[in-house]
Design a protein around this nucleic acid. Structure first.
Lengths: 138, 138
DNA sequence: ATAAAGGGTCCGGCTACTGGAAGGTCAAGC
DNA sequence: GCTTGACCTTCCAGTAGCCGGACCCTTTAT
């Protein structure tokens, strides 16, 4: 199976599949002409990677998951731990974004948004609003 | 004011301040010895950037905000529009993360997470779980 | 005089790819 | 046999926003 077909079967772009070979994530054999020859197992791994990436796992985590997947005797606890960690990271990121959103929303609500030049958003960015910190050097 | 002091006053790392010079975001004059000489206005801009970046504006947006800030006659509507766009982006990102979180949570809840090898998380990644999509090529 | 602290440039690396150029290979059609 | 076009190869550069480090110079304090 050439790279084009493998890409199609796994739902990944050709460039990405080639990249995964380059970083030794899925490295197929080569044909006589130098073409990558993807086995059914390779394609299976690519599909695995596509799903894991879509779930937000990093490449490093994917590598880990893949090795866990290959290791038929590993404990499911290890995989679960990885997933739980991911969830915690996602939660943290969501909270961070919520906080950003709140700040921006507050700013926007104070800005008339008309054609006049005074804008509380810029004022806040410039001065930091309530907290006016020092730096009184000239 | 040398770069170190400017960095401290703006709350940015020295490397970042130098980078902002490199990309012509805040480019101070130079002293006779080649050192960057930050004016009060430069530092003001750096602080502006620090806040805007913390709010998640990209460098391109920051450049835009900065030029709006410098332009005393611009309409506040333009700034407001930028902020509103940012909020929409944040909302989209939050939703995306929520959906990821949901998927992972579902997977984790089905996994015992003990020392036995069978793991629904990996099974799902491998096979796609409920939705078994085609790719019936051998 | 010397040593530490702080400046300067330049290069490489990080994530996870993506786009493009230059060239080899293969199957089909004429 | 020859051409065309799709497909494959490698390599290089770029994306965002810096960070770390090498190597060298200047300033300041002792």
């Amino acid at each position: 199976m050439n790279i084009g077909a493998a890409a199609k079967a796994s739902g990944l772009p050709v460039k990405t599949v080639r990249y995964y070979d380059e970083i030794d994530l899925v490295s197929p054999n080569r044909n006589g002409n130098g073409y990558r020859a993807y086995s059914a197992d390779d394609v299976h791994k690519l599909r695995f990677l596509q799903r894991a990436r879509r779930l937000g796992f990093t490449i490093v985590e994917c590598r880990h998951l893949l090795s866990l997947y290959e290791d038929k005797s590993r404990a499911s606890a290890e995989v679960r731990a990885l997933a739980v960690t991911r969830i915690a990271e996602i939660d943290a990121r969501i909270e961070e974004l919520q906080s950003l959103r709140d700040s921006l929303t507050t700013l926007v609500s104070t800005c008339r948004g008309d054609d006049r030049p005074d804008c509380p958003i810029l004022d806040d960015l410039a001065g930091g609003g309530a907290c006016h910190e020092g730096a009184r050097d000239s």
